[in-house]
Design a protein around this nucleic acid. Sequence first.
DNA 1: CTTGACCTTACCATGAGGGGAAAGTTTAGC
DNA 2: GCTAAACTTTCCCCTCATGGTAAGGTCAAG
Lengths: 141, 141
Amino acid sequence: MKSLVTIGEAAAVSGVSAKMIRHYEDIGVLQKTSRTDAGYRLYNSQQLQQLGFIRQARNLGFSLIQIESLLALWRDPNRSSRDVKQLAELHLAEIRQKIAELSQMEQVLQQLSDRCCGDLSPHCAILDGLAPNQNLAAESQ
Amino acid sequence: MKSLVTIGEAAAVSGVSAKMIRHYEDIGVLQKTSRTDAGYRLYNSQQLQQLGFIRQARNLGFSLIQIESLLALWRDPNRSSRDVKQLAELHLAEIRQKIAELSQMEQVLQQLSDRCCGDLSPHCAILDGLAPNQNLAAESQ
DNA sequence: CTTGACCTTACCATGAGGGGAAAGTTTAGC
DNA sequence: GCTAAACTTTCCCCTCATGGTAAGGTCAAG
């Protein structure tokens, strides 16, 4: 039963780089671990679980601050799933907001690109669309 | 015809903050401007146009490096629209990639959230979904 | 001549990492 | 037992686009 591993093995098992594991500890997302006499960090199976949890949450785009809250809820046996769901829905709204912004960019850029011949001529609808002439005039009114 | 303005007015007209105008000059996206005897930067109408161009391009999500290329093409009377379109299509692909990633996150997170009751019970499908495979615990024993 | 609004440079911070140096520790080979 | 490799530690710098702040110089109005 190898219950304590050093940071390299923790990184390999969890899929989180050693660099980032230390960083998470630095900023307080992870509690400080035990150390060997030489100062090497040691991770038990529960802490390995937490590292995996962080990786999954990062894959879903949660910020480290949100993950700190999620981890606190995960560890709390008296949590209510309502609190978890609220965090998730908040993040879901952020994701949808970003998708909306990107979709708007995509649409405008697609329109400009469609109107650009893409040939050897210097005339270009994309550059015309980026030029501020119209917008500046419009804004100043 | 007020052809030269200081940075504050340039910022107000272009919608780019004075801070960012100086930054763009620092990193070479904009050429150095003329200065008054006291060292104040002065902007002519062509430079104001460029600032507006940058703002439009930033609104479409172009990186400053891409904008540097776009500005070079904009200034080049011998450009080919093909080069511009290539840059735009590249960025369009980046945007679509990001949208795809975010949509994937949205879908997974939506599924987890749907399965979470959101009540006062501690059981939570979201936390279960974020927990790494129990292999981690199993492997360490 | 003062006051306030401007401008200058310079440094620090963000978020989520990556890169690398210098030094100490452990492990494997011999 | 010695040596070399592989690991770990802390520390500092880099990204990217942007904001903040401080200390000091300049300019225009009153």
